[in-house]
């Protein structure tokens, strides 16, 4: 039995689905965030495996861009999380009105 592209694709699909399950079932924002990062890494395996199979380097370049974008997004997302936690439990509009009147 030889190692083929399909092996890598299977593993990547499994990691992708695990990450997706995490996004859909967990409630902690940070864990959801990590699960999405895991999904992106799984896509990376698929891209690199296809890049290897077809002997085109474009797939690796594609993942490089995905990596850059994911890094930028993580900065934004974590900033929002920090701002939210700084606010305390975020009040909604009604709650705020009752507090102030």
């Amino acid at each position: 039995m030889d190692l083929t592209t399909n092996h890598f694709l299977f593993v990547s699909a499994a990691l992708f689905v695990i990450g997706m399950m995490g996004v859909l079932t967990r409630r902690n924002i940070l864990i959801i965030f990590m699960c999405v990062e895991m999904m992106v890494a799984a896509v990376g395996i698929t891209l690199v495996a296809f890049s290897h199979e077809t002997a085109t380097i474009n797939g690796q370049v594609f993942f490089l861009f995905a990596l850059a974008v994911a890094a930028a997004e993580s900065a934004v997302g974590l900033a929002i999380v920090v701002a939210l936690s700084r606010q305390g439990r975020a009040p909604d509009v009604e709650e705020m009105q009752t507090l102030k009147n």
């Binding site: 409630r27 902690n28 924002i29 940070l30 999380v81 920090v82 939210l84 936690s85 700084r86 305390g88 439990r89 975020a90």
Partner: peptide, 8 residues
Amino acid sequence: IDPTKLPE
């Protein structure tokens, strides 16, 4: 952050 203060 204080994780307990995060909305679920």
